[in-house]
Computed example of a mutant assay.
Amino acid sequence: MCSVIVDIGDDGADSSPPEQEEIVRRVDALFDYADRIEARVKATKERTEQLRQSIVE
């Protein structure tokens, strides 16, 4: 997950602009997408290894 430092005003309220929130939302979505791709690559490698082993046997 991505963390972003935001300016906290004297009253303790979060003063991050909507643009920063949108950037964080998009970055989080991209990290989620990368995680899904990583899982697919791992599954494909495992399947490839299984197929390779079945050919060798």
Rank of each mutant, 00 (worst) to 15 (best):
R52N: 09
V56K: 15
E21P: 00
R47I: 00
A34F: 13
R52G: 06
E49L: 08
D10C: 07
K45C: 10
E19V: 05
R36D: 12
A34G: 03
V56Y: 15
E22N: 07
I37A: 04
I5K: 11
Q50S: 03
R36Q: 14
Q53C: 05
R40C: 05
E19G: 04
Y33M: 00
Q53N: 13
A43T: 09
D35L: 04
I37H: 03
A39N: 11
E49W: 09
V41M: 03
E49C: 01
I37P: 02
D7R: 14
A34R: 12
L51M: 10
E19K: 07
C2G: 04
E38C: 01
L51E: 10
R40E: 10
S54K: 14
E22Q: 12
I23D: 07
R36H: 12
T44K: 03
V56R: 15
T48D: 06
A13F: 09
R47K: 14
D35H: 07
V27W: 04
R47P: 00
V27T: 14
D11I: 02
G12T: 11
C2M: 06
E49A: 03
S54P: 01
G9E: 12
R25G: 01
D10Q: 15
G9P: 06
A43V: 06
V6M: 09
V56S: 08
R36V: 06
E22P: 01
A13I: 07
R47Y: 13
S54C: 04
A13M: 08
E46K: 03
P18K: 09
Q53I: 08
E38F: 00
D7T: 05
Y33G: 00
C2K: 11
D28N: 13
I55W: 15
